[in-house]
Lab assay of single mutants.
Amino acid sequence: MKKYKITVYDEKTGEKHTIEIEMSEEELEELAKKLAEKHNVKVRIEKV
């Protein structure tokens, strides 16, 4: 498992949230996809 920083940005409201999380790359990609689809936000992932 690796550490990642996830930034979620909502273009409508301008809200931006960043968290650090430790998980596998596959789980992370699935999480990012679900966030983007369900909440209509942009998701950026960076390795820490």
Results as ranks from 00 to 15, higher is better:
1 M>I: 11
1 M>S: 12
1 M>V: 11
1 M>N: 11
1 M>Y: 07
2 K>T: 13
2 K>N: 15
2 K>R: 12
2 K>I: 15
3 K>L: 07
3 K>W: 11
3 K>H: 05
3 K>E: 02
4 Y>T: 02
4 Y>Q: 02
4 Y>A: 04
5 K>P: 02
5 K>H: 08
5 K>R: 15
5 K>F: 11
6 I>D: 00
6 I>A: 00
6 I>E: 00
7 T>F: 07
7 T>G: 00
7 T>P: 00
7 T>A: 02
7 T>H: 09
8 V>M: 07
8 V>Q: 02
8 V>P: 00
8 V>H: 01
8 V>R: 00
9 Y>D: 02
9 Y>S: 04
9 Y>G: 00
9 Y>T: 09
10 D>N: 14
10 D>F: 08
10 D>S: 03
11 E>P: 12
11 E>M: 08
11 E>A: 05
12 K>W: 10
12 K>N: 14
12 K>Y: 11
12 K>D: 14
13 T>P: 00
13 T>K: 03
13 T>L: 03
13 T>W: 03
14 G>V: 00
14 G>R: 05
14 G>P: 00
14 G>A: 03
14 G>H: 05
15 E>I: 14
15 E>L: 13
15 E>G: 04
16 K>H: 14
16 K>P: 05
16 K>R: 11
17 H>F: 15
17 H>R: 08
17 H>I: 13
17 H>Y: 15
17 H>C: 13
18 T>P: 00
18 T>M: 07
18 T>H: 05
18 T>E: 08
18 T>N: 03
18 T>Q: 05
18 T>W: 05
18 T>C: 09
18 T>L: 05
19 I>A: 03
19 I>D: 01
19 I>L: 07
19 I>V: 07
19 I>F: 15
19 I>C: 12
20 E>I: 14
20 E>L: 14
20 E>Y: 15
20 E>K: 04
20 E>R: 04
21 I>E: 03
21 I>D: 01
21 I>M: 10
22 E>G: 02
22 E>I: 12
22 E>Y: 15
22 E>F: 13
22 E>R: 05
23 M>F: 05
23 M>V: 13
23 M>H: 01
23 M>Q: 02
23 M>T: 08
24 S>Y: 14
24 S>D: 13
24 S>C: 11
24 S>V: 07
24 S>P: 08
25 E>Q: 12
25 E>V: 09
26 E>A: 11
26 E>D: 13
26 E>F: 09
27 E>I: 05
27 E>D: 11
27 E>G: 12
27 E>R: 07
27 E>W: 06
27 E>A: 12
28 L>H: 03
28 L>N: 02
28 L>G: 04
28 L>K: 03
28 L>W: 06
28 L>F: 08
28 L>M: 14
29 E>H: 14
29 E>P: 05
30 E>V: 14
30 E>C: 06
30 E>M: 13
30 E>T: 13
30 E>H: 11
30 E>L: 12
31 L>R: 02
31 L>T: 05
31 L>P: 00
31 L>Q: 01
32 A>L: 15
32 A>C: 14
33 K>T: 09
33 K>Q: 12
33 K>P: 02
33 K>I: 09
33 K>E: 06
33 K>Y: 03
33 K>D: 05
33 K>F: 04
34 K>S: 11
34 K>C: 09
34 K>T: 13
34 K>I: 12
35 L>I: 06
35 L>H: 02
35 L>R: 00
35 L>E: 01
35 L>P: 00
35 L>V: 04
36 A>C: 12
36 A>P: 02
36 A>K: 11
37 E>H: 06
37 E>Y: 02
37 E>Q: 12
37 E>M: 07
37 E>F: 03
38 K>N: 15
38 K>I: 11
38 K>Y: 07
38 K>S: 13
38 K>G: 12
38 K>M: 15
38 K>V: 10
39 H>W: 01
39 H>K: 14
39 H>F: 03
39 H>Y: 04
39 H>E: 11
39 H>V: 11
40 N>Q: 06
40 N>M: 07
40 N>C: 12
40 N>H: 14
40 N>D: 11
40 N>Y: 03
40 N>I: 06
41 V>N: 10
41 V>L: 14
41 V>M: 12
41 V>C: 10
41 V>S: 08
41 V>H: 06
41 V>G: 15
41 V>R: 07
42 K>N: 08
42 K>L: 08
42 K>E: 09
42 K>Q: 10
42 K>F: 01
42 K>C: 12
43 V>I: 13
43 V>N: 01
44 R>N: 09
44 R>P: 01
44 R>F: 11
44 R>H: 15
44 R>A: 07
44 R>G: 05
44 R>K: 13
44 R>Q: 12
45 I>N: 00
45 I>A: 02
45 I>W: 05
45 I>K: 01
45 I>H: 02
45 I>G: 01
46 E>Y: 00
46 E>G: 03
46 E>T: 08
46 E>A: 05
47 K>A: 15
47 K>N: 13
47 K>G: 11
47 K>H: 15
47 K>Y: 06
47 K>F: 08
47 K>Q: 15
48 V>K: 05
48 V>H: 06
48 V>M: 08
48 V>G: 04
